[in-house]
Design a protein around this nucleic acid. Sequence first.
DNA 1: CCTACCGATCGGTAGG
DNA 2: CCTACCGATCGGTAGG
Lengths: 208, 208
Amino acid sequence: MARLVGRVSAPTLGRRRQRRSAEREKSIRAAALRIFRQKGFHAASMQNIADAVGLYKGSLYYYVSSKEELLVRLFEGRADQVLGEIRAITYGTGTCTEQLRAMVRAYVLGVLRNLDSVRVYLREEHVLPPAALRQVHDEQRTMRDLFEGVIGHGMRDGSFVGTDPKLAALALLGMCTWVHRWYRPKGRLTETAIADDFADRAIRMLSV
Amino acid sequence: MARLVGRVSAPTLGRRRQRRSAEREKSIRAAALRIFRQKGFHAASMQNIADAVGLYKGSLYYYVSSKEELLVRLFEGRADQVLGEIRAITYGTGTCTEQLRAMVRAYVLGVLRNLDSVRVYLREEHVLPPAALRQVHDEQRTMRDLFEGVIGHGMRDGSFVGTDPKLAALALLGMCTWVHRWYRPKGRLTETAIADDFADRAIRMLSV
DNA sequence: CCTACCGATCGGTAGG
DNA sequence: CCTACCGATCGGTAGG
C-alpha cells in the first residue's frame, strides 16, 4: 500500500497525506526558526533541525531544497501585515500626531509579535541571497519612507519640530526596533504598555 | 647570529623581534575583526584570516590558541574608554540635562568610532564563552545603569518627565545604538552632527 | 633550548 | 521518507 501510494502522481495524492505533508513542512520551518534564533544560521545544522522534528537529516531535503531556502522562506511575507497596517494609517484621516502615534504603536507591536523572525533576520541578513536581500531591504525602505513621509508633513505644517525627517525616522525606528534586544515575554512590561509608552515618547521627541 | 639569538632566554629576546611579533598579532586581530564583520564568525574561516595577513593558516596558531579566543580578544577593553567618559560625566557638576546631553553625545560617538566591533559584537554575542559573555553583559548593564541613574535623578527633581527611568534608558540607548545599522562613513551626516542631533532628541524625549 | 613559521594531515562535519 | 554515502572544507595540530 505504502509503495503504491508512493507511485501515484503528485496531483492525485491522498488528501490526508497532503495535509500530513504540509503539517510536517510547517513543523520543519518552526523548528528551523527556533534553532536559527538559538544558535545562529551557520552554527545550526540540518541535523539539529532533523533531530528536532524526528527525521533523518537527508529526509529534510524532501521538503526543502537547501538550508538557505529554509532561511529565505522564514521571512517571506513576514512584513506584509505590519506594513499594511501602517500604510493604512497614513491613508487615514488623523492628524500627523495621531498618525505617527498609531504607526509607532503598530510597529512596536509588530516587532514584539515576531520576535524570533526579527532576531534571526537582523543577525542573518548577510546570508540571504541577492533577491531575498533586495526584498527585505525594499520592505525596510518602504517602512522608513512611510515614517519619513508623516514626519516630514508634520515638520512642514508645524506639528513637529526639526528639518530632517529622514534622520528623525531613523532615530525613531531605532528606538522601536531595539526592543527586540531587551524585551522578555515574562518581564514586568506588557507589549501594549511598551507600545503606548514608545508612541508617547516618539511624539515628545518631535514636539516643541 | 640567528642561532645565538635563538638561545637567549625569553626576557632578553631581541626588541625588534618582539615588536614584529606584536605588530603581527595586531594585524591578525584587525583582519579577524574585518572578516568577522563581513562574513560573520562562523562563515569566516581561519584560512580567510590567514590569507588577509599573508600567513599560512597553521601559523595563526602561533599567535592565537583558537578562533574563539580571537573573537573574545576583539572585545577586551573595547568599552572601557566610552564607559570611562560617561562615568566621568556623571561625576561632574552639570545639571541632569547637561549631563544626559553629554552622555548621549559620547555614547553615539563611541558607537560610530567602533563600528566594526559593535556590529560584530551585536551579531556574535551568542558565540562568546560564558566568562566573556558575562563581561560584556556587565559592561552593558553598567552603561544602562549610568543612563538610568541620571534619568531617574532628573525625573525626581522635575528636570525630566516620566516615572520609568529604566524604560527611558532602554528607549534612548536603542535609538543611539541603532546608528550602527544605518551610518555610512561617506554619507551626508558627520559623526558629530548625528551625535549632537541625538543629544537634542534625547532631551526633548524627556522634557515636558 | 626558543622563535617563527612550513607542508601535511588530523578527526569531524558541512550541505547535498 | 531512509540509508549510505560524496566532495569540500572546517578548526586545529603534528613533526621538523
